[in-house]
Every structure is written in structure tokens, then in C-alpha cells.
Simulated scan of single mutants.
Amino acid sequence: MQQGRSRLRMLILSGMFAAITAVLAQIEIPLPLVPISGQTLAVGLTATILGSRFGMVAMLCYIALGAVGLPVFAEAKSGVHVLLGPTGGYIFGFIIAAYITGYILERTKFNLTMALVANIVGMVITLAIGATQLKFVLGLSWPEAMAGGVYPFIVVGLIKAFLASWIGIKVRNRLIQANLLENKIQKAAV
């Protein structure tokens, strides 16, 4: 019975973080090929707080909501055409980034240093998958894809990785203290 409640609580939190991702996606700075948005900050927060499995579940929910037509992607866009378009690789990258970020934290420690390392790895994954799809969909060369889809996001990505780590660890600890999140997700004690 307790395990079922815990799982339900985590699924509810996953849904909440899918919604948070949708909200943060609407905060953006337009650039020529790919805008800078709050989506990647949300991915880092989600993985840092929920861990690998439920962080990935949250991103799958987010993508499913957008795929069926809810305006949850950047610029209030939605639909499968967004996922298959030039910026869709970044969105697909959120799934793997959330899982790997959470996995690194689960195998090490949920502290600021490891969260920053894990979030930087997640940022690199998102940028790599995003730039790859950008290259092929727009028929760009690798240098063009890197110039338009990676380089402009490195500094902002590092800032977002730090914010996701710092806020994520604080929120995670508060949720554990409030008995809204179980500490057993964490494999190594802080």
C-alpha cells in the first residue's frame, strides 16, 4: 500500500514538472535558428529533484502533451511537426538528458557539485541531439549546425545548469523534509 502511494506521489510530481516545463518554455529570447528558452532549465530542475526515472517520465509527459496539440513548446507551439522540425531534436534530447542527469545524481550524491556536473552533462546531451536534428532537417553543414544550434547556448546553458542544480537541490531537500519526496531515490547519502 505504501509503495503504491509513493509511486502515485511520484507520478503526480512528474505531471507537475511536465507542467512547469510547459510554463518555462514560454520564457524565451528569440535567436535566428533556435530560441533560448526556459525549457532546459526545467529539464535540469526536474531531473535534479525527481531523479532519472521520474524525470524521464515528466519529459515524456511534456512531449506527449505537445504532440497531441497542447501549446506547451516554446512560442506556445505544439504538434508532431514541431518534434520533426528543426528544433525537435532539442525536445527529444530532454528525455535522455533528464534520465542521464538523474542517473548521475542517483549514482553519486544529490549535492550542488554533483548536480552541476550532471546538469552540464545533460546540457551537452540536449545540444548534441538538437544540433544533429537541426543539421539534417535544414541541410546544414556541421559547422553551420554548431554555429546556429550549439555555440550560442553554451554560456546560457552553463548558467541554467547552475540554477537548476542550486534550486533543484534546495527544492529536493525541502520536499524530502515535507515527506513529499522519498529519500530512497538517492543511492548515496548526502
Rank of each mutant, 00 (worst) to 15 (best):
A145D: 02
L50P: 13
V121T: 14
L138W: 00
L134E: 04
V82E: 12
M114S: 06
I96A: 15
A118M: 12
N111H: 05
A76L: 12
A64N: 03
I125S: 08
A128S: 14
L134W: 04
G88C: 07
E144Y: 01
A115D: 00
C61Y: 03
K135E: 13
A67K: 02
K135P: 00
M114N: 14
C61V: 13
I125Q: 08
T108S: 05
V80M: 15
V72M: 10
G122C: 04
L84V: 13
F94D: 04
A115V: 00
I129H: 04
S141M: 03
I95W: 03
F110W: 10
E144A: 15
H81R: 10
G130F: 03
E106A: 08
T132E: 11
T126Q: 14
V121D: 09
T87F: 06
R107E: 06
H81S: 15
A131V: 02
G122A: 07
E144T: 12
Y62E: 10
M146H: 00
K109W: 02
Y62F: 15
P71N: 09
S52H: 14
L140S: 01
A76N: 14
L127A: 10
F136P: 02
G88W: 03
I120M: 06
F92L: 13
K135A: 14
I104M: 12
A74I: 10
I63V: 13
V121L: 06
A128N: 01
P143E: 09
K109V: 01
A76F: 14
K109L: 01
T87N: 11
L140A: 01
N111V: 00
S52F: 12
L127C: 11
R107K: 15
V117F: 12
